[in-house]
Structures are given as structure tokens and as C-alpha cells.
Design a binder for these strands. Structure first.
Lengths: 224, 224
DNA sequence: CGGCATCCATTTTGATACTG
DNA sequence: CAGTATCAAAATGGATGCCG
């Protein structure tokens, strides 16, 4: 079974030959927030059967976009991580996310799954470097079962799954409320004042948090 | 027959629900260099059957990403163009192209088709705004049968299919030679001095041309 | 738990013939 | 030209089952 290709000498088409198949980009999205175990990938991607997941992972390995790793002690369990080439697909995934935030994120629909990791990618997509000038802070987010953190350092942002070593501030919010923020039904500041999100830690870091991320104005796709 | 969806409340997944199917991104790539006729799309995308092309176009129309237009006189023929939402997928396509230029554009392979339009998209992908500071020039490219032009205006670049009204400079190059530049076997300057590309027009505009575009260093995808 | 193999019902696709 | 209609060949999804 040889691999399907567009057979075009074109950078876009060559890239899509590698990552354009169904689920592949979403697998990369998962790995962009840190290494993940086989089972966790399966759990995150409802509808992707175990057979196809294994095939996709093997494909990504063969093409040098991902690799199998062993998580550092004390975990020592196997997982998948992106290679350098895979990491560099980040901008492409973020560009898709940015477009989606503006043109496709209306109300959460019935049956749609949601994971905190995805919101974290969304944060990367609407991060405003200028608003983070001179700021150095680590935020830890608790969303349902999930913990993740964002490290801001003077115009740069790094968001990773898992807890931080020494967070400056901690934000706790429910999945539903975070989804509401993503679809603009709520703002982060609004959730905090409404009490549906609770924050602790460095006041200065928390004060600047809402400015760090700017969701694009929502637009409707119509005849243009 | 309802549309397949990832069923995820995630900007990336929502976007892929709309444009993640096979051929869709390539259709958008085609339209990013200007409106195209049904037959031209079919000719550019070898392997895409007429049935699927019609279905994809209808899908893009229904979702507000493309629309049917009538080309201005004296043409007056039907064609497809992007809507505002469709145009804004440009950054995502360019991000894919940028990645491909670095990680996937080795030698042109046997059987791969090639169109000047694609190289033009590649130009957008490696345009260096700083190198165009204070420059205002229109370049017209002749590649085989195709004609297209690039309008540079102080840090901005617009590349479109078709001839320019009043080009400052004209570059003529064969498809093969342009492909060689894309895969780094040749440089634009090299092709000019070698005589495989010929240029005419404003000397200053031509002098600055090679600096306007910087191909990223080619990398090999391996275990990282 | 991780991961591959198998079986089978549905969709998608690719290629071509056909029509206004 | 611009599309429809049709049919065969993949690809997908879902359910298990198995093995280290």
C-alpha cells in the first residue's frame, strides 16, 4: 500500500502529503502541548480508532515528525513527542487556530468534546507579545482534572501540559466556563469577577493576565 | 448525507472540519492567486476528478469561503473567487508552504506537476518585508505559458496571476529553472548570470529583487 | 497499558462516460 | 466548457481479540 500523494512540486502540497490526512494535524496539535501517551491520545481524539492511531503514529515516526520517547523518572513510561520538524509545524497549526477563532468558533455544539489543552493552544493563538513586554511570570491553570501552565517571558509565551514548578499565579476555572470564554460568551475578567473562576498568587501577574490574550472579533462567513 | 466532523470544540478542529478534506486546501491555494475558472482548476489539480471538484466548490460556497463570480469585461466568463473568509486562510496556507520549503522541498520528483502560480505562493512565503523597505515596484514574471506579477510596496507584497498594467521590470524564466531555484539547486541571481533567466526593465528594481525573497535553509527530517 | 491484526459496514476518492 | 451520473477502488470507523 503505497502512500497517496498529490504529485505536485509545491511546498504546500508536499506538506499536505505529509500531514494532510485525516487526524494527522490533530495529532500534532496534541503533541504541541507536550509528550503524550498512546492511551491519552486515544482518549483525546474520540472517533479515531486504535488501528488508525497506530498507523498515523507510525507514519509520523517514519517521516521524522514524531518519535517515541520514555518520560523522565519517576514516570518512565513510553510516550510520543514531536521532533524538531514536528515542532516547527506549530505556526501552521496556530494559523489554522487563529482563523478558526475568528471565523468558526460560535457556540459550543452538542456532543463536542473539549480539553483544556486545546484552549491552551488557543491562548498561544491569541497571545499579544507587546502586552507581555517586560513581564516574566508563570501561570498555572486548573481546568477540571487537567493542569497546565503558561510561562511568559518578555514577549514570549510557552504553554505546556502539566503543572509548573513554581507558579506565580494560579487560575482555576471549569471546562464549561473556559469554553464560554473561547466562544466569547464570557471574558476571563468577567469569569473572575463573577466568581466562576478563582485566582490566587501575585497580584501584578494576575492584573496583566487579561491583556496578554486578545481574541479576534468574531466574524460570520458570508458572500464577500 | 451529513458532513463528517471531528466534533471537537477547538478552533483548529473546527477549521479542519471546513477545509481539512482532501484537495480543499489546494483549491484555496489556487484561488489565493486570483479567480480561476472551473476548467483551469481541473487542469491545475491532476488527480482531482470533475465530480469531486464540483462537490468541493459547492462546499466552499455553502460555507462562505468561495463564491462564483463573473470575470470583468471583456472576459465575462464564470469563475470562482475567495470570499473575505477564504482570503484570510492565506496565512495558514503560507505557514504550510513555509514549513514545506524548509522541510519537504528536495529535488523535483518524476511525475510531479508544477505551475508558476505555486512558485508565486512560494515567493509570498519567503518574502522579507525589511528588504523591501522604501521600495515600490511591480515585477512581471513570464514562466512558460504563464504570466503573473508581484507588486512590492514598502514592505508589502501582493502576488497575482496574470499580467501587470505597467511593470517596472520583467523576468523570463523556464519552469524547470524556476523549479531548480525552489529546490535550491540554483539561485535566482545564478540563473540570471547563467542566462537561463532573462530580465529587462528598471535596473534598481532588478538589483533589489534577489534580496526580497529568502529561502529558508533546507533541513532533513530525522529523529530529533 | 500499548499496540498490532482482523473483520466488516460506510464514506471518500478517483476515473470516465455523458449531457446541456 | 461546466458540470452530473456512475462505478470501482481506497480510506475510515468501530468492534474485538490477542499478545507482551
Amino acid at each position: 500500500m503505497e502512500q497517496r500523494t498529490y504529485n505536485q512540486f509545491c511546498a504546500t502540497a508536499r506538506t499536505l502529503d505529509l500531514v494532510g490526512e485525516r487526524w494527522t494535524m490533530l495529532l500534532i496539535r496534541e503533541l504541541l502541548t507536550g509528550p503524550k501517551r498512546y492511551g491519552d491520545l486515544q482518549a483525546s481524539l474520540r472517533g479515531l480508532g486504535t488501528g488508525l492511531l497506530a498507523a498515523r503514529l507510525k507514519h509520523l515516526e517514519r517521516e521524522g515528525l514524531a518519535r517515541k520517547v520514555v518520560l523522565p523518572p519517576p514516570a518512565r513510561v513510553p510516550a510520543y513527542a514531536l521532533t524538531e520538524a514536528g515542532e516547527e509545524l506549530g505556526p501552521a497549526v496556530l494559523a489554522l487556530a487563529q482563523w478558526g477563532l475568528k471565523w468558526a468558533m460560535d457556540e459550543r455544539r452538542a456532543g463536542e468534546t473539549f480539553h483544556a489543552d486545546w484552549a491552551v493552544l488557543g491562548m498561544r493563538a491569541c497571545f499579544v507579545p507587546d502586552a507581555a513586554a517586560g513581564l516574566r511570570a508563570v501561570y498555572e491553570f486548573h481546568v477540571g482534572e487537567d493542569v497546565l501552565h503558561a510561562r511568559v517571558d518578555d514577549g514570549t509565551l510557552e504553554t505546556v501540559h502539566g503543572p509548573a514548578q513554581r507558579p506565580d499565579a494560579t487560575i482555576t476555572i471549569t471546562e464549561d466556563e473556559l469554553a464560554a470564554v473561547t466562544s466569547r460568551r464570557q471574558t476571563l475578567s468577567g469569569a473572575i469577577t463573577a466568581g466562576t473562576a478563582t485566582v490566587t498568587g501575585d497580584r501584578e501577574a494576575l492584573r496583566r493576565l487579561p491583556d496578554l490574550f486578545r481574541l479576534p472579533p468574531q466574524s460570520r462567513r458570508v458572500e464577500g
